[in-house]
Amino acid sequence: MRPRFGRSRALGGAALTSVLLAGCGGDAAVPPEDAPPVPDELACSEGTISGAGSSAQELAMQVWIAGYQQECDDATINYDPIGSGGGRSQFIDGAVTFAGTDAALHGEETEEARDRCAGATPVNLPAFAVPIAVVYHVDGIDTGLNLSPETIAGMFNQDITAWDDPAIAADNPDLDLPDTAIQPVSRSDESGTTENFTEYLHAAAGEAWPHDASGQWPIEPVEAGQGNSGVASAVEGGDGMIGYVEVSHAGELDAANVGVGDAFVAPSPEAAGRVVAEATPREGNEEHDLALDLDYGTTAADTYPVVLIAYEVACLAYDDAEEVDLLTGFLSYVVSEEGQRAASAETGSAILPESVRADVRAVVDVITVD
Rank of each mutant, 00 (worst) to 15 (best):
D171N: 05
D102T: 12
I92Q: 03
S191V: 04
S148Y: 04
V130M: 09
Q90I: 06
T151W: 09
D115W: 14
T110Q: 10
Q90D: 12
E150W: 01
G140S: 10
T198R: 02
E150S: 08
G144Q: 11
A127M: 14
M155N: 05
D93F: 10
P122Y: 07
E199R: 14
E108L: 13
A113C: 12
D115Q: 15
N146W: 05
P184H: 02
P122V: 10
F128W: 10
P149S: 07
D164P: 02
N157P: 00
G154K: 06
V185P: 04
E108I: 12
S186N: 03
V135P: 06
T180F: 01
P166L: 00
I92C: 11
A103S: 15
H137W: 07
N196L: 05
T194F: 04
D102H: 13
A153Q: 06
H106D: 14
A133H: 11
D93W: 11
D189P: 01
W163A: 07
V123K: 06
N146C: 07
Q158E: 05
V135G: 09
G140T: 05
D189L: 10
A104K: 12
N124E: 08
Q90G: 00
I182N: 00
D171P: 01
P122L: 09
G107R: 11
I160K: 02
E190D: 07
Y200M: 09
I141F: 09
E109M: 13
F197T: 01
S186C: 12
L147V: 11
A127K: 11
P131Y: 10
T110G: 02
A181D: 08
A103W: 15
A95T: 13
A127I: 14
D139I: 07
H137Q: 15
G94L: 11
R114G: 12
I132F: 10
E108R: 12
S186F: 02
L145C: 04
A104G: 15
H137G: 10
G144I: 05
V130P: 06
N124V: 06
S188G: 00
P166A: 05
H106P: 03
S148F: 02
G94E: 08
F98L: 14
D115C: 12
D102R: 11
T180Q: 01
R114F: 10
N124R: 08
A133M: 12
A120D: 14
A162F: 04
I141P: 05
D164M: 01
E111A: 13
R114Q: 15
A118D: 15
H106F: 13
I160F: 03
F128K: 04
Q183G: 00
E109L: 11
D189K: 03
E111S: 13
E109W: 10
N196P: 03
A133L: 11
V185A: 01
G144A: 15
D176L: 00
Q158D: 08
